[in-house]
Nucleic acid binder design. Structure first.
Lengths: 239, 239
DNA sequence: CGAACGTTTGAGATGACTCAAGCGTTGTGG
DNA sequence: CCACAACGCTTGAGTCATCTCAAACGTTCG
């Protein structure tokens, strides 16, 4: 049971860890939990005693706005820790919500603490994982501040394409599963849902990609990446 | 000499560290360097062997845009590590530039590594510092995605006010030193410089604050914070 | 079957941008 | 020491991107 967990979980961003570091880390988790879609996993201000590693599904981080809907500031895909920063900080400044049904490996903070004390190398790797997150956050700030709607939306789609593929969700002929609505995209990009719809139409008519039914179908990846002028270096993917 | 450095540097965000943790950490730095205004401290893709703690002045992190000026995605103030994430990641995805003349304490990565191996508690504190950075990045994504120009600019000014005050730069009758131009603000907020100028005029005419000559003079802090609906929880300031 | 939700499209309003010009300040070289 | 260049600030006028409001449609789910 546990070994199966470990096997399945060494995916996506956790591939930054060597096989041996991974086997050490995976011993800190003794439980896999399933979370239903739209469940709030943790709420701003909560004090957390555990962090979760996404095995399947997608979660979002939301900053509540005083007026209007909470704003989507990050998504986590399989292989990402959804809230590892709660381990050193103990507290979250935002909400974490399951966008789909989610399978997650639970890492109690006390187990992490013990593990880290004995394995500084793994500690460094975990630190690095949160720093890749930070780099992605910077890119979201850049995207929302520097890009116009067409490039902005395309850039987000490129990021999702790259990260989801790296997480092992290979594009099939039917497309890459992206369980977000146009409203979610609008929320992430700081655009109105109507405008997202129009920009998606433009991308479709330009032969770049179609988005719908939970799938992103990329017809011309090179063109899409060119529209976004996408440079994935900020994702710090190995290779 | 060194003790003076330590004394002066235990400011701002480093106050998250206890006095004893701080004395341990400060032993990892044997050099204070002065960097001239507008100097590029490190460039995207560089492999860094040291990280710097700002003692005085301000630095910016810029993501180069394929077209147009590089985009300002973060500023660091006294007490912040400008590039501590280069320690676990070894590489940067963006440029770091001195916005003013900067005094910085140098922390060679090999000294940090040794120190961290012996003091896991300090390691955890350093990790936490980079996570506060990440939280600030999330807020910048939120700001650029969710707020309209008036609130957006006001929110940035509130953040600068809070962080600079916390860094020990108390507001004098003449104002709080904010060594940025309107162009910098525009760059950070994803607005045109002309529009920043108009919004600053609005803030001035509303009696909130005046910005100019390297100073932010806040006339009615409560009003300014209300315009931005500013909630500083994301800064994770103790107390 | 009806309600709720997401998508799609249109029309009009507006916030923010671009272009343009003038002004003040600073720094520099003749 | 002056002159000029460079830069940032300020304001105006017109344009454009994006938003808002509105309505219709399809799908899902209870």
């Amino acid at each position: 049971m546990e070994s199966r967990t470990a096997l399945r979980a060494h995916i996506g961003m956790t591939r930054r860890l060597s096989q041996s570091d991974w086997s050490i880390l995976s011993q800190a988790s003794h439980e896999v939990r399933t979370v239903r879609r739209d469940t709030v996993i943790s709420r701003r201000g909560d004090t957390l005693g555990e962090s979760i590693l996404i095995l399947s599904g997608m979660v979002g981080r939301y900053i509540p706005a005083t007026s209007g809907a909470p704003h989507l500031v990050a998504v986590e895909v399989p292989g990402d820790f959804a809230d590892l920063h709660a381990f050193p900080l103990k507290q979250l400044d935002h909400d974490v919500t399951a966008r789909t049904d989610v399978e997650a490996a639970i890492f109690p903070h006390e187990d992490l603490a013990e593990l880290i004390a004995r394995h500084p190398g793994v500690a460094r790797q975990l630190w690095a994982l949160t720093l890749v997150d930070a780099s992605i956050h910077r890119h979201w700030a850049f995207r929302n501040g520097a890009l116009r709607s067409l490039a902005r939306l395309a850039d987000l789609l490129c990021e999702l394409d790259t990260r989801l593929q790296y997480a092992g969700l290979r594009a099939s002929p039917k497309g890459l599963p992206v369980p977000l609505t146009q409203i979610d995209l609008a929320n992430a990009c700081g655009m109105s849902a109507e405008h997202v719809n129009r920009v998606l139409r433009d991308l479709r008519e330009d032969g770049c990609c179609t988005f719908g039914g939970g799938f992103l179908n990329i017809h011309d990846r090179q063109k899409l990446y060119a529209v976004a002028q996408f440079n994935p270096s900020y994702l710090y993917l190995p290779d």
